[in-house]
C-alpha cells in the first residue's frame, strides 16, 4: 500500500548468517513502510534482528551476513525509486545515498568511530564528502553541530579522540556526524541509551526540529518505551526477525494485539512502582535457539495464550486487525489484551 509519501518500503526482507553451526535467520521476512517526515519506532527483543535490518538498508551487513531475499525501495531526493537490495554495495550510487540521503547513528559508538582519528576529523570527513565546502568551513560546521547536540566545550572536544570522552559524549559525536548532512532518512539505532534524561530530551528536541525543518523521516530503534511513547507516531514490534505487530503508537500502547507486545508493556519499571513493592514481571523463558526456530508461531514457546494446537502447527500471517494496525497472532482479534491506561478524557474525546 505504498503512496507518493512513502520514502522507504521494505518488503519480505530476509538476511541470513551462515555459520559453521547452521544458518541464523536474523531477518526473516520483515516488511514495513516509512513515510516522509514521520518517526517510526522499532522495538523488540534483544537479538531479534533490528540492527541487522537497519544495516541491510544501507547494505553494510558485515560478513558472513547476506541478504537472500526481499526488496528495500528507497525514494531519492530527485524522485527516483531504487531497490537497495539490487545495488552493488560498493557502487557509486549507494555511496552517494549513504551518509547523504540516509544517515545512520550506530548502536555502539565505539564500533563505528575510528579510535585513531579525532572526533572533529571524522565529522569533517563526513561533511566534505557530501557538501562542497572547504575544510575550514567544515570544521566550523562540525563545532556548531557538536554544540547543537548539547556537547560541552565543543571547541575542545572537536580535537579529542573517542577514548578521551565519556560514553554519552561519543554517542552525541556520532549523532552530530549523522545530522551534519541533513539526511532525508535518519536511521537511529539506540541513539540515546548512553544519555541522561535531560540530555536525551535535548537531543530528541533537536531531532524533532530538524525533522520539521527538512521533512526528515526517522527510524528509531530503542528499548525505551517511554521514548517510543513520546517521540514516535508509528511503532513496529519485532520478534525473531519478523514484524509481529505494527500500528499507531496510541493504539499499540493502549490496546496491544500481540501477546509479546503485551509482555513488553508490562515489563517496564515505571517511576513510582517501587512503592508497590512488586517484582518486575518478565516474559517467561528466553528467545529460542536461532538454529531451531519453533514450528508454527515463533512466539508459542513463551506465550501464555498458546492453544497447544494451531499455534504449534501453523505460522500466523501478519494481517490487518483494524485499519492501520496489524498483528501476527492467530487470536489477535479476540484476546482483548490490556495496554497502558488511557485517560478518561481521551476516551471521551
Amino acid at each position: 500500500m505504498s503512496d507518493s509519501n512513502t520514502i522507504l518500503k521494505i518488503d519480505d526482507l530476509h538476511t541470513h548468517y551462515d555459520t559453521p553451526q547452521g544458518t541464523v535467520r536474523a531477518v526473516a521476512g520483515t516488511s514495513l513502510e516509512v513515510h516522509r517526515g514521520e518517526t517510526v519506532g522499532i522495538v523488540g527483543e534483544s537479538g531479534c534482528g533490528k540492527s541487522v535490518m537497519l544495516r541491510s538498508i544501507l547494505r553494510i551487513v558485515p560478513h558472513p551476513g547476506r541478504i537472500i531475499g526481499g526488496s528495500i525501495e528507497f525514494t531519492r531526493r530527485d524522485g527516483e525509486t531504487v531497490d537497495m537490495v539490487k545495488l552493488d554495495p560498493n557502487s557509486r550510487k549507494i555511496r552517494s545515498i549513504r551518509g547523504d540521503e540516509i544517515a545512520m547513528i550506530f548502536q555502539e559508538p565505539m564500533s563505528s568511530l575510528s579510535p585513531v582519528h579525532t572526533i572533529g576529523d571524522q565529522i569533517i570527513e563526513a561533511i566534505v564528502l557530501h557538501k562542497s565546502v572547504s575544510n575550514t568551513e567544515a570544521r566550523s560546521i562540525a563545532i556548531e553541530m557538536l554544540g547543537k547536540v548539547a556537547m560541552p566545550r565543543p571547541e575542545q572536544i572537536v580535537d579529542q579522540y573517542p577514548h578521551e570522552i565519556s560514553g554519552g559524549m561519543r554517542q552525541r559525536a556520532m549523532i552530530a556526524m549523522a545530522l551534519s548532512c541533513e539526511p532525508r532518512l535518519l536511521i537511529a539505532d539506540e541513539p540515546t541509551t548512553a544519555l541522561d534524561v535531560t540530555t536525551q530530551a535535548q537531543i530528541l528536541d533537536l531531532m524533532r526540529r530538524l525533522q520539521s525543518e527538512f521533512n526528515m523521516a526517522i527510524m528509531f530503534v530503542t528499548h525505551d518505551l517511554g521514548v517510543v511513547a513520546q517521540m514516535t507516531e508509528h511503532v513496529v514490534v519485532m520478534y525473531m526477525g519478523q514484524v509481529v505487530e505494527a500500528g499507531s503508537v496510541k493504539e499499540l500502547f493502549t490496546a496491544p494485539r500481540h501477546p509479546y507486545t503485551h509482555g513488553l508493556l508490562h515489563s517496564i519499571p515505571r517511576l513510582g512502582q517501587r512503592k508497590l513493592g512488586r517484582r518486575l514481571v518478565s516474559i517467561k523463558g528466553s528467545v529460542p535457539d536461532p538454529f531451531a526456530r519453533p514450528s508454527g508461531c515463533p512466539f508459542h514457546t513463551r506465550c501464555q495464550y498458546n492453544d497447544g494446537d494451531r499455534c504449534v502447527r501453523e505460522e500466523p500471517a501478519l494481517r490487518e486487525v483494524m485499519p492501520g494496525h496489524s498483528a501476527r497472532c492467530h487470536y489477535a482479534e479476540t484476546l482483548g489484551l490490556q495496554g497502558v491506561d488511557k485517560p478518561a478524557e481521551a476516551i471521551n474525546a
Binding site: 541522561d196 534524561v197 535531560t198 536525551q200 530530551a201 525505551d224 518505551l225 517511554g226 521514548v227 517510543v228 511513547a229 513520546q230 517521540m231 503508537v249 496510541k250 500502547f253 493502549t254 508493556l265 517496564i268 515505571r270 517511576l271 497502558v340 491506561d341 488511557k342 485517560p343 481521551a346
Partner: peptide, 14 residues
C-alpha cells in the same frame, strides 16, 4: 530537573 525529564511510557501522558 532530571526527574522531570523522564519520558513516560504512555502516549497519553507527558
Amino acid at each position: 530537573a532530571l526527574m522531570s525529564a523522564v519520558p513516560e511510557a504512555n502516549p497519553y501522558s507527558v
